[in-house]
């Protein structure tokens, strides 16, 4: 054993310095990804976990809030106002404000990100439910649908395209925002970025940054795919798009453009 170790140590300096050594410090370096695979995968895993938990929590809170807001118009104004105020607070200021209650834990990051996702999702749900044509709702009632069945079988499926557009915005921005969680040491790939900046380690920094963007686009593609599978009728004639634009007018199309 000692012999092989020695041999390895002896041959290492003779070889080319790796592209992530202090001397070369290249931006793009596959050797880094290979040698530090576990570290990178751990960070990416944490990143993914935080994102998924935050968006799931956001959806879980957004659905009842949107339904409540629809029932009580006065509440709708305050829910929307509150969410606008919340989105104004920068993420790096929101996490510290949660720390006294949840400490330096992953919970802090997940709750903070869920609040941001919530602001987008409540709007999307309200907007989506509003895009359901009234005559469809009436026909369903005429067919004997109760409120619960109407919501689950008719309204939610028809609201899905608009809701999914909101979900895409929420998910993609959550992936980017997760990096800021490095402030409390739970930032997924953000931890690597922070380490890369402080130690001037370019390969680490660039790998983490690129992975963030890749995760964002991968999740986005996944949601688009899910939407296609869940709403097969939108593909037949592009009819939903036309109906939606006609119904919700400018704001609907503007939001589509935003999304």
């Amino acid at each position: 054993m000692p012999v092989t170790l020695l041999a390895a140590a002896a041959s290492a300096p003779a070889a080319e310095p790796s592209c992530y050594s202090r001397l070369t410090n290249e931006w793009f370096c596959l050797d880094y990804v290979r040698d530090r695979r576990e570290e990178v995968l751990d960070a990416a895993g944490q990143h993914l976990l935080i994102t998924v938990l935050a968006v799931a929590l956001g959806v879980a809170l957004a659905v009842p809030l949107a339904l409540l807001a629809r029932r009580l118009p006065r509440l709708e104004a305050s829910v929307l106002g509150l969410s606008t105020g919340l989105y104004t607070v920068p993420s790096i200021a929101l996490f510290p404000l949660l720390v006294p209650f949840t400490g330096l834990t992953m919970t802090t990051v997940v709750i903070g990100l869920a609040l941001y996702a919530l602001t987008v999702l409540v709007r999307a749900f309200l907007e989506g439910l509003r895009s359901v044509p009234d005559e469809v709702r009436e026909s369903a009632r005429g067919l004997g649908y109760g409120a619960g069945r109407l919501l689950v079988r008719i309204e939610l499926p028809l609201a899905l395209p608009v809701v999914m557009a909101g979900l895409r915005v929420a998910t993609v921005s959550t992936v980017a925002l997760t990096t800021v969680g490095s402030l409390v040491s739970y930032g997924g790939l953000g931890n690597l970025i922070r380490d890369g900046v402080t130690t001037n380690f370019r390969a680490e920094l660039m790998t983490a940054a690129v992975l963030c963007v890749v995760i964002a686009f991968a999740l986005d593609a996944l949601i688009v795919l899910a939407q296609r599978l869940l709403t097969p009728w939108t593909r037949t004639r592009g009819s939903t798009r036309a109906t939606r634009a006609g119904r919700s007018g400018r704001s609907g199309r503007a939001q589509e453009a935003e999304a």
């Binding site: 989105y87 909101g166 939001q255």
Partner: peptide, 10 residues
């Protein structure tokens, strides 16, 4: 009165 969808910043 038209506004576009907001989104948070990171």
């Amino acid at each position: 009165t038209v506004t576009t969808g907001h989104h948070p910043t990171g």
